[in-house]
C-alpha cells in the first residue's frame, strides 16, 4: 500500500504535465478541425473541413511527399548506421575513439544542419567545387535545395540521423557478448555470416526502435522541409503551418484537420515501437 502511494507520487508531476498538454492539444485540434473556433466566430460543427481537405490533391501530394522523404531518410539512415556500426565493431572491437565523433551531429540543431548541407552539397557548395576540381568543367551536382524530389531534405536527415543510429547500434553491438561472434566463427561461420545471422537478429529490436523514432521525427518535423524543401509539394507539417498562419479563420480549421490526421497517424509509430520493445524485453529475460 505504502509502495503504491510512493510510485504514484513519483510519477505524478511528469504525468500531469504531459497528460494535460497532450490532452488539451489533441482535444483542441479535433475541436477546431470540426469548425468549432469561437474566437474566430466559427461555432458550427461540421465535417466539411475534412471532406474538402481529403478532396484536395495538394493534401495528398503533401502526404505522399512527407511519407516518401521520411521513409527514405529513416530507412537509409538506419541501414547506413548499421553498416557503420558493424564495420566499427569488426575493426575496433575494443573501443573506437572516433565513435565520439558520431555524436557530433546530435549537438547540431536541424536549422544549422540544413545550412551545413547547403554549403556542402548546394549550388557552388564544397562538393560541387571538389567535383569540378577532380573531373573538370561540366560536372555539376544536381540541384539539391528546394528540389521537387526532396533530396535536400533526405540528405539533411541522413547527415543528422545516420551517425546517431551508428552510435546507438555500435553501443549495442559492443554490449553484446563478443563470445557470440567467436562461437559462430568457431562453428564455421564467415565474418559476414556471423554478423548477419547472429548479431543482426539480436539487434532487431534496436534497429526497429531506431528506425521508428527517426521516421516519426522526420515525418512530423517542420524546420528541415520548410528551409530546404520545395514550395510544391509542401511537407504535411509545412502545409499545416501555412494554413495555421493564414489569417482566414477557416484556414485554421484546415490546419487543425491536418494536425488531427497527423496525430491519428502517430498511433502507427507508437504501436510499432511498442512491438519492437516487447520483443526486446522478451529476449532480454
Amino acid at each position: 500500500m505504502r509502495k503504491s502511494i510512493t510510485i504514484c507520487l513519483l510519477l505524478l508531476p511528469a504525468t500531469l504535465i504531459q497528460l494535460w498538454i497532450m490532452f488539451t492539444g489533441i482535444f483542441s485540434s479535433i475541436e477546431q478541425s470540426l469548425g468549432y473556433i469561437p474566437t474566430a466566430g466559427l461555432t458550427e460543427i461540421s465535417r466539411d473541413y475534412y471532406r474538402e481537405l481529403l478532396a484536395d490533391p495538394t493534401f495528398w501530394r503533401s502526404l505522399l511527399f512527407s511519407l516518401y522523404t521520411a521513409l527514405f531518410s529513416s530507412g537509409l539512415s538506419v541501414g547506413l548506421g548499421l553498416g557503420l556500426a558493424g564495420l566499427m565493431a569488426a575493426n575496433f572491437p575494443a573501443r573506437f575513439s572516433a565513435q565520439q565523433w558520431f555524436k557530433l551531429p546530435i549537438i547540431v540543431p536541424h536549422l544549422v544542419a540544413v545550412f551545413l548541407i547547403m554549403v556542402t552539397l548546394g549550388n557552388a557548395g564544397l562538393v560541387d567545387r571538389l567535383l569540378h576540381f577532380a573531373w573538370g568543367p561540366g560536372v555539376r551536382l544536381p540541384n539539391l535545395t528546394m528540389d521537387p524530389w526532396g533530396l535536400g531534405i533526405i540528405l539533411t536527415y541522413i547527415w543528422k540521423s545516420a551517425p546517431y543510429a551508428a552510435f546507438i547500434l555500435y553501443t549495442f553491438l559492443r554490449n553484446t557478448d563478443p563470445r557470440l561472434i567467436a562461437t559462430a566463427r568457431n562453428l564455421g561461420a564467415s565474418p559476414w555470416r556471423a554478423f548477419w545471422h547472429v548479431l543482426v537478429p539480436l539487434l532487431k529490436p534496436a534497429l526497429g526502435g531506431c528506425f521508428i523514432l527517426i521516421f516519426a521525427y522526420n515525418f512530423t518535423a517542420f524546420e528541415v522541409p520548410f528551409l530546404i524543401g520545395p514550395t510544391y509539394p509542401k511537407a504535411l507539417p509545412v502545409l499545416a503551418y501555412t494554413y495555421f498562419l493564414n489569417p482566414d479563420s477557416e484556414a485554421r480549421a484546415y490546419a487543425m484537420a491536418i494536425n488531427s490526421l497527423l496525430l491519428l497517424f502517430s498511433l502507427f509509430p507508437i504501436w510499432f515501437f511498442q512491438r519492437c520493445w516487447q520483443n526486446e524485453s522478451k529476449e532480454g529475460s
Binding site: S4, L10, T24, I26, S28, T220, P237, M256, N259, L263
Partner: peptide, 30 residues
C-alpha cells in the same frame, strides 16, 4: 519499482517522441 501498467506508462512517456509535437502545440495554443 515494478507495478501494474508500467509498460503503458513507459509508452506514454515516450509518445511525444513518436507523435507530432508541433500539431499538439498548435492545438494547445488556443
Amino acid at each position: 519499482y515494478q507495478f501494474a501498467g508500467k509498460r503503458l506508462i513507459e509508452i506514454f512517456f515516450i509518445s511525444p517522441l513518436l507523435a507530432p509535437v508541433m500539431s499538439i502545440a498548435m492545438g494547445v495554443h488556443m
